[in-house]
């Protein structure tokens, strides 16, 4: 397996308060890394650091073996290789579904409109929303919006995807559709870093679990072992509290 992403000794603090301390891990191409941990443990902050939405004080991120120079300009170039999906979907309300999806490919990657739209249609079809191109985000349910948000990120053909609690604000019956799409992506060997509270789903797709507590990685354990045999008491406690 080839290494896609490596994080070394990442530290981040909000003022005096440390939120991430000495974070180091590696993600290989095609791997699904699930980040678990209690609220406030720094999970979201961690994956937001990975596409430069959060600045960090020290540490190094290597992307495809190359050290990432954490300047705004450089992050802007890198972000088209990093898909990110947020908890609150954040589609652009002023653009219809097609324009939401093709904005990046056309404006950032300078694809032709025809190429971008063709690809958008193909991707929309895979999430069962091919008929929705002319609709606006306001006309869609939360689950549909989140599926569009995933398509919007995929349309740039990123090298890996970040998912930040993408089902946390969805109605229960909407959750499954979104998780299925993510499971499909994992099956197609998309490299993914997933922050989630859906334990069954995490167990199903995780190649490896990073367990965070209080800004530290307490353990990094293969997915097949973490849920049945976590190494730390804190992780055991956490799994119990999640009724798992």
């Amino acid at each position: 397996m080839t290494e896609l992403l490596r994080v070394e000794h990442l530290n981040k603090a909000y003022g005096e308060v440390p939120v991430l301390q000495d974070i180091s891990f590696t993600v290989n191409t095609g791997e699904v890394q699930v980040v678990l941990g209690p609220s406030g443990s720094g999970k979201s902050t961690l994956i937001r650091c990975l596409n430069g939405l959060e600045p960090y004080q020290s540490g190094t991120i290597y992307f495809q073996g190359q050290k990432v120079d954490p300047t705004p300009k450089n992050w802007q170039l890198l972000r088209q290789k990093i898909g990110m999906v947020f908890q609150s979907y954040d589609l652009f309300p002023n653009l219809n579904i097609m324009d939401n999806i093709t904005l990046g490919p056309i404006k950032v990657q300078k694809q032709s409109k025809a190429t971008a739209q063709k690809e958008a249609l193909r991707l929309l079809d895979t999430v069962g929303l091919a008929d929705y191109t002319a609709k606006f985000p306001r006309e869609l349910s939360g689950g549909q919006k989140q599926r569009i948000a995933i398509v919007r990120a995929l349309a740039l053909h990123p090298d890996f995807m970040l998912f930040d609690e993408v089902t946390a604000s969805l109605d229960p019956e909407m959750v499954r559709g979104v998780l299925e799409i993510m499971a499909n992506l994992a099956k197609q060997k998309m490299t993914m870093i997933v922050v989630t509270h859906e334990m069954n789903f995490a167990q199903q797709i995780a190649d490896n679990v990073l367990f965070l507590d209080d800004g530290h990685i307490l353990e990094s354990t293969p997915g097949k072992d973490f849920f049945t045999n976590p190494q730390t008491d804190r992780a055991k406690e956490f799994l119990q509290s999640m009724d798992f």
Partner: peptide, 22 residues
């Protein structure tokens, strides 16, 4: 909302593109 700006950044928009389209 700040999340709109972040989702624009996340698809690689430059500052100028972010201003114009979002």
């Amino acid at each position: 909302p700040n999340s709109q700006i972040e989702s624009g950044k996340a698809i690689g928009l430059s500052q100028g593109q972010l201003t114009r389209y979002v």
